[in-house]
Design a protein around this nucleic acid. Structure first.
Length: 278
DNA sequence: AAGCTCCTCAACCGCGGTCAT
DNA sequence: TATGACCGCGGTTGAGGAGCT
């Protein structure tokens, strides 16, 4: 079957999105949703292909995106989920509310993978590695700090779209927000029920910063108590949280809900912690 | 202080799956 | 059933930035 090219290359813009484009995209999705990604850019007057718009929205502009560093708990979850699921980033992302598959994929490839590899190698060549290149375990913290700064700087230039973009709202804080919203939302729509049962537990673990590995006990006791096949079934069947934003037919109400959450949060740098009293 | 090296992450590409006709 | 169109996913890339020498 013939596949249409992703986009007509003629006249369509590529590369980094400008704040103006972001505003246009967000405004359009807030007003009309995104029933058809392919048609969206034309309707919105954007010189982008639908795929690019979708990616931008999913990975960056969605109001529930959690910005900032990954917590230790999240990283542990990613590692363990990766052991379980492999490179199924979307499935992993479904277990980490507010995180996108792209983000998780990046984190994995940048430092989690490296962190695991040296730990195995260290048993063999503990001394030699330090010379040639800094081990990932040493470089990761450095970069994580730099990332924070980088993101912070960017946030000032970004449109007032993602409240969570400010690093002043910590991971645990925004996670709690998303969790609360998701829990409440899940109760009303039932859409994300499949994942929320686990995710909410997971979030509760995230919020207790002092109990670093509580996530593993509560989350994994539940997850691992399932036969692997069941897990795989659940993972493959459950609607992923991001899809509740209107990617699916069932999500008109979801879209409204999340947009309302976002709008009532000020649509900008407003603290989102007091959002979910809807 | 300047140049270099390395890392991060946003964005692109291409494929497979699914749905509509 | 076959075909076409769209969506979503995973892999990959390259620009920009931070740290090091």
């Amino acid at each position: 079957m013939g596949r249409a090219p992703c986009c007509e290359k003629m006249g369509l813009k590529r590369g980094p999105w400008t704040p103006e484009e972001d505003k246009v995209l967000v405004a359009h999705i807030q007003s009309f949703g995104h029933g058809n990604w392919r048609a969206l850019p034309k309707q919105a007057g954007l010189l982008r292909c639908g795929k690019s718009c979708r990616l931008r929205w999913i990975n960056y502009l969605r109001p529930d995106i959690k910005r900032g560093n990954f917590s230790d708990e999240e990283e542990q979850s990613i590692i363990q989920l990766h052991q379980l699921l492999g490179n199924r980033w979307s499935a992993i992302a479904a277990r980490l509310p507010g995180r996108t598959d792209n983000e998780i994929k990046n984190v994995w490839h940048t430092h989690l993978k490296k962190r695991l590899e040296p730990s195995e190698q260290e048993q063999h060549e503990q001394a030699g590695a330090a010379k040639k290149r800094k081990p990932a375990s040493a470089s990761a913290p450095r970069k994580r700090e730099s990332k924070a700064r980088k993101t912070d700087v960017k946030a000032t230039a970004e449109p007032p779209v993602s409240p969570e973009r400010s690093l002043s709202s910590t991971v645990t804080e925004s996670t709690s927000m998303v969790s609360a919203a998701a829990a409440e939302h899940g109760g009303s729509s039932g859409n994300s029920a499949g994942s929320s049962s686990v995710s909410v537990k997971e979030e509760q673990s995230f919020t207790s910063e002092s109990e670093e590995f509580q996530i593993d006990e509560s989350f994994w006791s539940e997850t691992l108590s399932m036969p692997l096949d069941d897990i795989m079934d659940v993972v493959s069947m459950e609607p992923e949280p991001q899809e509740t934003f209107g990617g699916n037919s069932s999500s008109e109400g979801d879209m409204d809900y999340w947009l309302r959450v976002f709008m009532e949060g000020g649509g900008g740098d407003q603290d989102v912690l007091d959002l979910p009293q809807i």
